[in-house]
Design a protein around this nucleic acid. Structure first.
Length: 285
DNA sequence: AGAGGCACCCGCACGC
DNA sequence: TGCGTGCGGGTGCCTC
């Protein structure tokens, strides 16, 4: 489940492969990837584009071109890039590419390398934006970058007007960009805040703690090159190590690493939610 | 405007 | 063994 740390890991691997390269071949195999645009049209527009930067904002990858256009990629659940040997699917060269299961798009670069995009559940999106469209596109969707200029006061002011459960509010990308289900549970556990607490009820000390916890959880995720769950892989085919660092996610029934009480799992904001019923005190009903 | 629920998609873990 | 069912995950859209 790519969240900010997984997307950042992908960005770091894509950057050296793509920057300075031009697309000499573009195939978009799944129309859903670019809908409502026409897949042939988008492929034709991408052909010949030269990459000048590979950025990230929240969970979005930003492939920026010399033309000042930008390809905004969202991996959603199962989107993944495969570079070079991983893209070639083994030693059998280009013929191996079509053998990649769930292949949705294929880029060929002017140095001969191939970059494949695979996506089992087909939720991933590629959006090609014209010059000047990127900033408003992101601003309309995303709050501050959690590891950039983002203070506890910023977080506090965004929570102050929200009565929804704190977990729902930090999953909202307009509160802070890049936190998904896993890192939300990890951050709430670190700050000892129950996921059902109304966001506006957090006091200043709790907001500071949560702010710190969000940043710490994401930073550890990046340092571990993301988490590898089910079949997620980085573009070079390697696995991340963050799944071994989870304190609560997927550990219901196991002892809380802090107090030893059995971790619980419930449902908050429609998401599987893992927490410690002792460390994270439930709000009064 | 904020909140909640659902659709989107498909592989997998289940139970029968 | 084979089938049916439910689940999950991020986002966008719909309703209230």
């Amino acid at each position: 489940m790519p969240e900010l740390p997984e997307v950042e890991t992908v960005r770091r691997q894509l950057e050296p492969a793509l920057v300075g390269r031009s697309f000499t071949g573009v195939e978009i195999l799944d129309h859903r990837l670019v809908q409502p645009r026409d897949r042939g049209e988008v492929a034709a527009e991408l052909l010949g584009e030269q990459v000048v930067a590979v950025g990230r904002r929240g969970k979005y990858l930003l492939v920026r071109f010399a033309s000042r256009r930008a390809l905004v990629v969202h991996l959603r659940m199962t989107g993944a890039f495969l570079i070079g040997a991983a893209a070639a699917g083994g030693a059998d060269g280009p013929s191996g590419l079509a053998a990649i299961p769930h292949l949705r798009a294929l880029l060929v670069l002017d140095d001969g390398a191939a970059v494949a995009f695979r996506d089992v559940r087909r939720f991933g999106t590629w959006t090609l934006l014209e010059p000047g469209e990127l900033r408003p596109y992101l601003a309309a969707r995303l709050g501050p970058e959690p590891l950039g200029a983002f203070s506890a006061a910023d977080l506090g002011s965004r929570l102050a007007r929200r009565q929804a459960p704190i977990k729902a509010v930090i999953l909202d990308q307009s509160t802070v960009a890049g936190v998904g289900n896993i890192y939300a549970d990890e951050a709430l556990w670190r700050s000892r805040i129950h996921p059902l607490r109304p966001a506006a009820d957090l006091d200043a000390a709790e907001v500071r703690s949560l702010h710190r916890a969000i940043r710490a959880a994401l930073a550890v995720g990046i340092a571990r090159q993301g988490a590898t769950l089910r079949d997620y892989r980085a573009p070079d085919g390697s696995s991340g190590g963050m799944q071994d660092e989870f304190k609560v996610y997927g550990r219901d029934g196991e002892p809380c690493p802090r107090c030893g009480r059995a971790l619980a799992k419930s449902r908050v904001a429609g998401r599987g939610t893992h927490f410690c019923p002792r460390c994270q005190r439930a709000p009064a009903a």
